[in-house]
């Protein structure tokens, strides 16, 4: 028995977000923690790029609030940062989609910079200003991961014919 494609598509998207959230709170040794990539940002950028008619700002907002709860930050903090990323991606998705992979990586780098800046800004207002240098580490790591994540999500998308 086959599910109708629409429902199957939703399941693939939900599963990818769930995996991203799991990886976000997966325990790492202390030294590795500053290097943790922003998995949820990668998933958000991917779905906003390739399925903008399915994953929009509302979904992003929901995921952001869940992430706030999981990381124990102020409610709305990650949601705001993710919303900005999703909004820019949605605005430019036609251009970014046809970029070669290294230009896409640069675009992800810029989006991650915005994301990190918003988080840093809000945290700074709350007095969490420690580790200012370490904060920029995930920016580069996430951007470097983009080609691989894009390839695997694309395989997944083709395999399950998500559209």
């Amino acid at each position: 028995m086959r599910n109708p494609p629409r429902r199957r598509a939703n399941w693939v998207i939900v599963a990818s977000y769930l995996v991203a959230l799991l990886l976000t709170i997966w325990p790492l040794p202390n030294w590795a923690e500053p290097f943790r990539p922003a998995w949820v940002v990668l998933a958000t950028i991917y779905w906003c790029l390739f399925l903008p008619h399915r994953v929009g700002l509302l979904v992003t907002f929901g995921v952001g609030v869940l992430m706030d709860t999981l990381t124990g930050s102020l409610l709305g903090e990650h949601a705001l940062a993710l919303l900005l990323v999703a909004w820019i991606t949605l605005k430019l998705h036609l251009q970014i989609r046809v970029f070669p992979w290294w230009q896409q990586t640069l675009a992800v780098l810029v989006l991650m910079l915005i994301y990190t800046f918003v988080l840093f800004w809000v945290d700074g207002m709350l007095g969490y200003t420690q580790g200012a240098m370490l904060r920029w580490m995930p920016v580069f790591i996430t951007a470097l991961l983009w080609p691989w994540v894009m390839q695997s999500l694309m395989l997944l998308q083709q395999r399950y014919q998500v559209s």
Binding site: L57, L74, V122
Partner: peptide, 13 residues
């Protein structure tokens, strides 16, 4: 949505 985020952060603080 952005306004919602900011309001959430404000009230959560």
């Amino acid at each position: 949505l952005i306004a919602t985020c900011i309001a959430l952060m404000f009230y959560d603080h």
